[in-house]
Write a protein that binds this DNA or RNA. Sequence first.
RNA 1: CGGGGUGUGGUGUAACGGCUAACAUGCCUGCUUUGGGAGCAGGUGACUCCGGGUUCGAAUCCCGGCACCCCGACCA
Length: 419
Amino acid sequence: MLQSQLFTKTRKEVPSEEVSRNAKLLIKAGFVDKLQAGVYTYLPLGLRVLEKIANIIRDEMNRAGGQEILMPSLHPKENWEKTDRWNTMDDLYKIVDSSKKEFALGPTHEEIVVPLAKQFIASYRDLPMYVYQIQNKFRMELRSKSGVLRGREFLMKDFYSFHADEEDLDRHYEVMITAYKNIFKRVGLGDITHLTFASGGSFSKYSHEFQTVTGAGEDTIHICDSCSTAINEEIIAEQKECPECGGKKLKTEKAIEVGNTFKLKNKFSDPFGLAYKDSEGKDHPVIMGCYGIGLGRLMGAIVEVLADKAGIVWPASVAPFAAHVVEVKSAESANVAMAAQEIYGMLSREGFDTLYDDRNVNAGEKFADADLIGIPTRVVVSEKSIRAGGVEMKGRTELAGMIVQKEKLIDLLSKNTNQ
RNA sequence: CGGGGUGUGGUGUAACGGCUAACAUGCCUGCUUUGGGAGCAGGUGACUCCGGGUUCGAAUCCCGGCACCCCGACCA
């Protein structure tokens, strides 16, 4: 991608109303645009990151047996009345069309997926079954805040599992927890994202959350010193030691909930009559689990946690581009431009998604933008680098680059990308 | 939903109740420059959030609304 052709530009200053680190950086660098509080457009750079995250999640969800579907956002009122959430869910968006018909904008999809599953699940032979989607959710937050961390419209992966009994749900629940751990590891937040015990609501003793430690978080968690499992503040009164290993040394941190897992059991299958026949022809309710991850929130958390003074620092796994080629022009710049184009062409042919800064601006501005955008590897092509025998390669967080011959560039980049 | 704060060109700011709303940045033209947001010259861009009111006169004071931000509550 030629940077001169990129739809967005970086900004020198961000709107003064933005306070949160993720919003400031994502807006300044041109990843997102705020339409209204808690509602964001994902621009080309931001969408690339979101897609990278989505593909990692897809990969893990598919491994866990999930089949991807896409359900609608516009929901009939009747479905929400069946579970009584039309009246009890405070943050449900309700809309009325010109014929006075009422709808809900989906904040979650149990009310849709359960009747859907009813069409296909009738026998013990149909279980277990797993479906998921990555789709926009709507929740009427009275107070959206913290940039992309808490929105009113936001992209979420929701996975639903259907089981014959609780034992099978428990078995799969562990599969999902492992998958979630893989996801957070793969997006670069493994070390600071903790499996957290949280309140389970009326139908289960605990639910679990995945909480990423950051000062920008709105939850308080207590992390076990010995096994790194955590307990949400909301249940600390009843649970004073680590439920996983019994450890008593707990460290208190602020954290943001990036994922959650719930054992729904028969809470939603009952109102919709989702049941199956066992081998003797007897009816049983289908037992369910649901598992969510907020993609935009995850992206925001990565920015919050990894950015430095100069800008965003993307892990290679979710970076919008693998390499950022920066052409530094000079008086006799024809050969620099040619060399830069050659490097760009070579990287592209070798399959590296590359952003090529071909703009006619000063070197300082290009470097500042490169740091701000946060692509993992910067490749400078200049009079200076050519004289030194190649290009200058520098990792985003490294202080100084090194000159490498262009023949070696591919090898070195491959290492960076695979780590 | 309770409390607090803020609304001025795209963005960041300035302007005692009083001249044609100023400066920077961005953007456009030309020249120049190219290793950390460079320089010169010219230009573009604002019903001062909306609606009322006070006043000879309102960006400025008052009332109402809306939007945004922060704290709290809420968040199966």
